[in-house]
């Protein structure tokens, strides 16, 4: 059969060339990253052991352990989530469901998007001045958690708003038409429908906040902690800070310990990501009204 169109050989060659270049542009950085992650994982796994996970920091690299940092990160994660999630989801509900269109609402929206772009180290300066000094929380766990909560807040608001927007307006209207008040409709109809979306977004944001190092360092979190946090007022350290500390030392032994710390941190991140995916799948199956 004769063709209905002519084939411009030059154009075909050019397109092929571009495809090849584009694939190269994708594969090259991914290969480099795979190499870097692979190298770190190999170094890290060789050092990973029960003693490493349950040990305290030491001046000798081969004895150094990560327990205080791990405990600190866990405590920070729980406290931060407990503060940022209710407030963030609340703000998202207000902006999506209640806020009357107008200047103030636009201001809040622009403001939240801007806050999401503020470098994390600036939050550290805010926390240092407000929580550590003015509110006299000192360089404690609670000061760190408050700072991370402020950092997490805009991310939670934006993720929750996106999830709330997926619920079609007619469901709200149906609830109101049945006589439900605004909040009743939101709580019994809208929230159950978009809970999987909210949870996924929130957990992913939490994973990101937990990896933050700069705000905690600015706050003055310690790098050498040989005890576990016992109260909100305890001094603390966290996994990213411990990794930073070990990386900054000249001895190669500490670099291996840092690699092992990175393996632990990335495992936590992957677990959080996996939790988000599993939650989404489970909750999507059975929506309880």
């Amino acid at each position: 059969m004769s063709r209905l169109y002519t084939v411009d050989a030059q154009a075909v060659a050019a397109e092929r060339a571009f495809r090849a270049i584009a694939i190269l542009a994708l594969v090259l950085p991914l290969c480099l990253l795979a190499l870097l992650f692979g190298g770190t994982l190999i170094d890290g796994f060789s050092r990973l052991s029960f003693d490493f996970l349950s040990g305290f920091p030491s001046r000798r690299p081969e004895e150094a352990g990560i327990l205080p940092a791990l405990a600190g990160t866990m405590a920070l994660m729980l406290l931060t989530a407990a503060m940022a999630i209710p407030v963030g989801v609340g703000a998202a509900i207000y902006l999506e469901e209640y806020a009357p269109p107008g200047k103030i609402t636009t201001l809040i929206e622009v403001n939240i998007r801007n806050l999401a772009g503020v470098p994390s180290i600036i939050y550290g300066l805010l926390g240092l001045e407000v929580f550590v000094r003015s509110l006299q929380m000192d360089r404690s766990l609670i000061a760190g958690a408050c700072t991370l909560a402020l950092l997490l807040l805009p991310m939670v608001v934006m993720a929750s708003r996106e999830a709330l927007r997926t619920v079609p307006r007619m469901y709200r209207e149906a609830a109101w038409a049945l006589g439900a008040e605004k909040w009743t409709g939101i709580r019994r109809v809208v929230l159950p429908m978009c809970l999987p979306g909210i949870l996924t977004g929130v957990i992913l944001s939490l994973a990101r906040a937990i990896g933050e190092t700069a705000p905690l360092i600015t706050l003055g979190a310690l790098t050498y902690v040989s005890f576990l946090p016992t109260s909100l007022k305890s001094a603390f350290t966290a996994l990213p800070i411990q990794i930073f500390n070990w990386t900054s030392r000249p001895q190669a032994g500490f670099h291996v310990a840092a690699a092992a710390g990175i393996v632990v941190l990335l495992t936590m991140m992957l677990l959080l990501n996996a939790t988000a995916i599993v939650l989404r799948m489970r909750l999507q199956k059975k929506v309880t009204w």
């Binding site: 933050e212 990794i243 991140m269």
Partner: peptide, 9 residues
């Protein structure tokens, strides 16, 4: 989402 301290390492 990879923590930047990892990239620093």
């Amino acid at each position: 989402g990879v923590p930047t301290v990892v990239y620093g390492y």
